[in-house]
Amino acid sequence: HPLQDRWALWFFKSDQSRAWKDNLHLVTKVNTVEDFWAMYRHIQLASKLSSGCDYALFKDGIEPMWEDSRNKRGGRWLVSLAKQQRHSELDHLWLETLLCLIGESFEEHSREVCGAVINIRTKGDKIALWTSEAENQAGVLYIGRVYKKRLGLSMKTIIGYQAHADSATKSNSLAKNKFVV
């Protein structure tokens, strides 16, 4: 069962002695539903990774960094999790994110989706869905509403979208939300 796009899984493991990009490794690429599950079963659950590690699943040809030409005008829907959610919800939310990506869940706006990243961090894990054009309000909001629903987040939970250009200028990665849903 072929996927609309070929997807690349990346793994990041923090090593302060090396440059950021040298810690980023391409693991594998998948382009069928069957290959996706073979990959998913083969890798550690996100909740089992050590702090400082990331997974990223991006469309083939897009590197999981702001600087990529398909990302630099874009931004991300960010889901910040409390520490205790690592063991209760993290793996479920990440898998749901992956299924949104490979299943093309955002109708015609799926073409604006670049990928998703999960950050495993001691202070709280994060999952983000990256899109290519922060100025496309209609597309970004459509994706955000569908994504929030797919994650099963309650009405009172607010998630924000930040433009990468804003995040890049904030050393503490607390860029203001451009949109919220």
């Binding site: 069962h1 609309q4 599950w37 490979i102 299943g103 093309e104």
Partner: peptide, 20 residues
């Protein structure tokens, strides 16, 4: 056409043996 798959369809493949 566009290859769109809903979550239930994708989940049905989770435990199927893959041939790769």
């Amino acid at each position: 056409g566009k290859k769109q798959y809903d979550r239930e369809f994708l989940l049905d493949f989770q435990f199927m043996p893959a041939c790769i």
